[in-house]
Amino acid sequence: MIRYEKYHGTGNDFVIVDANADVPDWSAFATAYCDRETGVGADDPDRETGADGVLVLDLDAAPTAPEVEMRLYQPDGGTAAMCGNGARCVARWVADRTGTEEVIIHTPAGTRRAEVHGDEVAVEMGVPSFDSADIPLNRDRPLVEEQVEGWEVTALTTGVPHAVIFVDDVSDVDVEAAAPAVRHADVFPEGANVNFAAETASGFDQRTFERGVEGETDACGTGAVAVAAAARRIGLTDDESVSVSPPGGDLTVLIPRKGPAVLRGPVTREFEGELSPTPTQP
């Protein structure tokens, strides 16, 4: 058996396992334990079953700030280069072990710095890009407020590809029905996360259909940054600090004129336990 811990950032929940664990197939491990009916926590009615991903972490207690290598395996068995709420959970996991307030996180999308202040964690998210090659898109020019599968879409990358769609009220959208056509649209050769966002008095509401999860999640950190950056791009806000509210809670996104975006919000440690490294598939 191997040890694990469960954390969530505004409802975006992850199973966290040390990279030294003897797991022969991380993709199969993630598919089994992220399942929302039979996955981790299914044996306890008071716990949320399954997860939005498995974070595999290799911690190095460096002499300055602790450094950790982060790999994310998604429920479909694939991987993602970056996950904002996942990175915030990683920083809190490291802080819980080392007492540090600063963590350096190495991801496939680049190195990110995080600051931990109690339950609040802020992480650098890189500079959002609307460049077609960065996203990537099957075209040579940006995609900003153009029709894709019947929706007006703005596309960008915040470490992973995102399609942002602004609507009057996110509660009026059937996300599970509407998002897949955009997620698999020909213009996105690697697919895209699909965000529906609505302007509010305090910022923006957000609902996200996540690539790899293949369903709606309670929060998406890279999506929150995408919503804030897209809103700035099309003129819905000129603020550097933007409040974005997915169903799981409130996040703050800082989009400076220069430099990386920063995602801030709460992180909660849920529970811990032991799992078989070779799960039986349901």
Rank of each mutant, 00 (worst) to 15 (best):
I255T: 00
E270W: 06
V175T: 12
A219H: 09
P246G: 07
R232Y: 04
T158C: 04
E69Q: 13
G84D: 07
E67Y: 01
L263S: 08
L156Y: 02
S243C: 12
E67F: 00
E199G: 07
Q281F: 13
P128T: 00
D60L: 08
I255F: 03
K6C: 04
V164P: 00
N85T: 15
D43R: 05
M82T: 04
R36Q: 12
A230T: 14
D134R: 00
E270M: 10
R269I: 01
A114K: 13
T100P: 02
G39H: 07
T49K: 15
K6S: 05
D46Q: 09
G215L: 07
C220I: 00
R211M: 14
D250G: 09
M125G: 08
R269W: 14
A30S: 13
S241D: 15
V94C: 03
T10N: 12
T237D: 03
G84H: 01
R233T: 02
A181S: 11
A81L: 06
S245L: 06
L137E: 09
D140G: 15
V17W: 01
R183I: 08
E102Q: 11
G118D: 08
T222Q: 09
A28G: 09
A181N: 06
D186I: 14
N193C: 04
V175L: 11
T217E: 00
E214G: 05
S27A: 13
G150V: 10
